[in-house]
Amino acid sequence: MTEARTLKIKTTLARQMAQPGGRTIADVERRANERLERHRDDVMTTIAGAVTELELVVAAAAPGSEPQVYRLASSLLDTAGFFDTGPLYDAGYSLCDVADRMQAGGAWNWPTVAVHVQAMRLILSGGCKADATTDALLLGLRSVAAKARQEA
């Protein structure tokens, strides 16, 4: 009976990884953040557009447009997640949660959605900065969301 032999094969990638030099993780992260920051203005314009679309959907409050609320709010979250939008992200997440629960429970409440959208507009116009005003807005949204959860 022959004995099994183990061969170590060194791949090209392994040889390249073993060579000294290259970029540090901190440098790569810094460069990535710089490149991402170049898109901030465009992203904030896109977010403002999503909030405007939400305002139009809420103003119309047309039957059958309920799924648009979740779609627009989740799109806003997808975009806002790349940047530090603090309270805006929290308000958008709350709207997604409320819209999902209301739609699943069949008890849609447009005023609840309107309050969330108005809060997002205020937060956006304030530069998405966390302060006492946005803390109060988020606290109010939490209580509105809790009531909506009970109703759904």
Rank of each mutant, 00 (worst) to 15 (best):
R23I: 05
H39S: 07
A146I: 09
L77F: 04
Q150T: 13
G22A: 02
T6M: 10
A91L: 01
D42M: 07
E29P: 01
Q19P: 04
A62M: 15
Q150V: 14
G106A: 10
R15W: 04
W108M: 12
M1A: 11
E34F: 09
L56M: 15
L77E: 01
R5A: 15
I9A: 00
A152H: 12
G92F: 00
A4I: 14
K10L: 09
E151G: 13
T112L: 06
L88G: 03
E3C: 12
L72V: 03
L139C: 12
L88C: 01
A91W: 02
T6F: 11
G106K: 10
E29D: 10
H116A: 04
I123R: 06
A48Y: 06
P20H: 02
A62C: 15
M120C: 04
Y93I: 05
R31E: 05
V58Y: 12
T45F: 12
T52C: 14
R23L: 09
V117L: 08
E53Y: 15
T133P: 09
E66W: 13
H116D: 03
T12V: 00
L7Q: 14
Y89I: 08
L141E: 00
A59H: 11
R101P: 00
L139T: 12
A136Y: 04
D78E: 12
G21Y: 00
D97P: 01
P63I: 15
V98A: 06
A4E: 13
E34L: 12
E55N: 15
D131S: 03
Q118E: 09
A60G: 12
T133F: 10
T2P: 12
G92N: 02
A59T: 11
A80C: 02
A136W: 06
R31P: 10
A62N: 15
L137F: 01
D42A: 13
N33K: 12
L54K: 08
G92C: 03
R15D: 00
E37I: 03
D78S: 11
M102W: 01
R101F: 02
A4V: 15
A60R: 15
E34W: 04
A4S: 13
R101E: 05
